[in-house]
Simulated scan of single mutants.
Amino acid sequence: MIAIINTGCANINSVRFAFERLGVTPEVISAPEQLAQFDKAVLPGVGHANVAINRLRSQGWDKAIAEYQKPLMGICLGMQLLCDSTEEGQVDCLGRIPGKVKLLETGKLTSPHMGWNTLAVKAEHALTAGLDESDQVYFVHSFAHQVNDATLVEGEYGQAFSAIVAKDNYAGMQFHPERSGKVGTRLLNNFINWKL
């Protein structure tokens, strides 16, 4: 049973439909006390980090997520919120995945980074099964997790950044797997099959 955490900071329907296409019916939950009942959880997110982290804390999600012992994956802003801190609003985040989120240094490239991009696998993990260098996924972001020991997969747009991260039972995907076609479907399936 997979929970999709509804904090009011994401369009959760596209994530829900992506899982349903894989034959899994996730449950959208809005109360932190529900989280422990589920085998896996997804934290989607869009918008501004400062607004989102304040909403998470005011609703009690920070404590529930910290106590969760099973696989939990953040998507896009949801991934960034699982990290130590972000330059977007200069806020401390949930501290579940080591590392800082900083503004992408895009040089002459347009910002935000929006569109399809390739991936480079840096560490083997259940979440990266079947990925190769020709695969592309869909990004929409201006901030990114700085590459460190938690980085499983890198992307590049002006600079290298973390595209997939993991630490213990927590993971994150900076791109939108639910909008990334067959590659995204494979990655969501990897999450469904991820065992600790």
Rank of each mutant, 00 (worst) to 15 (best):
Q90V: 04
Q90G: 05
Q90F: 10
V91H: 01
V91G: 04
D92T: 15
L94F: 10
L94V: 11
G95V: 10
I97G: 09
P98V: 15
P98C: 08
G99E: 08
K100Y: 10
K100F: 12
K102D: 03
L103M: 14
L103N: 07
T106H: 09
G107C: 07
S111K: 06
S111Q: 02
S111G: 03
P112L: 00
P112N: 05
H113Q: 08
H113Y: 10
M114N: 00
M114V: 14
G115I: 12
W116E: 04
W116I: 14
N117P: 04
N117S: 11
A120L: 10
V121E: 06
K122E: 08
A123P: 07
A123E: 11
H125L: 13
A126C: 07
A126M: 01
L127Y: 04
T128L: 06
T128E: 07
A129Q: 09
A129E: 09
G130R: 05
L131I: 13
E133A: 15
E133H: 13
S134V: 15
S134W: 11
Q136C: 12
V137F: 10
Y138C: 02
Y138V: 08
F139K: 04
F139G: 01
F139L: 05
S142L: 11
F143Y: 15
A144C: 10
A144W: 08
H145V: 10
Q146V: 13
Q146Y: 14
V147E: 00
V147Q: 00
V147K: 07
A150I: 00
T151L: 14
L152N: 03
L152Y: 09
V153A: 07
E154W: 15
E154H: 12
G155K: 02
Y157V: 01
G158L: 01
Q159K: 11
Q159D: 05
Q159P: 01
Q159W: 11
F161Q: 00
F161G: 00
S162W: 06
S162V: 10
